[in-house]
Amino acid sequence: MKIVVLMKQVANKDAVLRIRSDERWIDESDVSQQTNESDGYALEEALRTKEAKGEGEVIVCTLGKQSAKSVIKDALARGADRAIHVLVEDENSLSPFQIAEAIGSAIKEENPDLIFTGLQSDDASYGQTGVVLAELLDIPHATIVIEVDRESINGSVRVKRELESGWYQWFNYKMPSLLTIQSGISQIRYASLKGIMAAKRKEIREVEAAIGDVDSGQVIEKVYMPLKTKETQILGGGDAKAGALELVEKLRNEARVL
């Protein structure tokens, strides 16, 4: 059982975002980075699947700059077996098709049984890199996977997909297949000290990205703070307690909802 997991490095959730001077992305120079949230769950799901099978290999693949190694090292410490780092300097200027294509050519010869990705990146939020990759590799895919029936794996895999408004649906997929994993599917393990030590000896293969010219890719022209659409009354001027007093007064006498 060979499983490839796609993991991306993104700006920290709580980071203060400043826009780069060319206005095409954020200024990443002093922003702390983390693993994309759903990708952490994708890795966890891959590790559990390998463990349930009692054999196999989990290979992490990250496309990004040299500093994205921290995502890879963390994944290796949690239990991934080895990694492929597709090196590009300015990943944010690439379209999702280009990213999928570059990742596809880097992992193709691995012929994995399963590919797990996150369902969406928290920065660019294209929500499609995995799906495009599946089409390029000519394998079936399922998005928004919330449960993998590991018992079922036997040339095919049964997965539970989330639909809208509290509905779900099980699908049976021929393997190899690609699954995009929803956050919260399971509890993510921490890296153990032993894991961190072991990670130092694990292989990280670097490959130069093969970036193709995409025929109709999207290009970000300008990034900016969203235009405010609503007049929000900010209460308390930074003092939460004063704000709370004002709020109760407003809810009673202005909005009249209490």
Binding site: A11, K13, L17, I19, I26, D122, D123, A124, S125, V214, D215, S216, G217, Q218, V219, I220, E221, K222, V223, Y224, M225, P226, L227
Partner: peptide
Amino acid sequence: RRIFLGKLDADVKIKGEG
């Protein structure tokens, strides 16, 4: 499009042929 979990907006153009 909204990016960065709703914190920023991005104006995008599409290159090439339809």
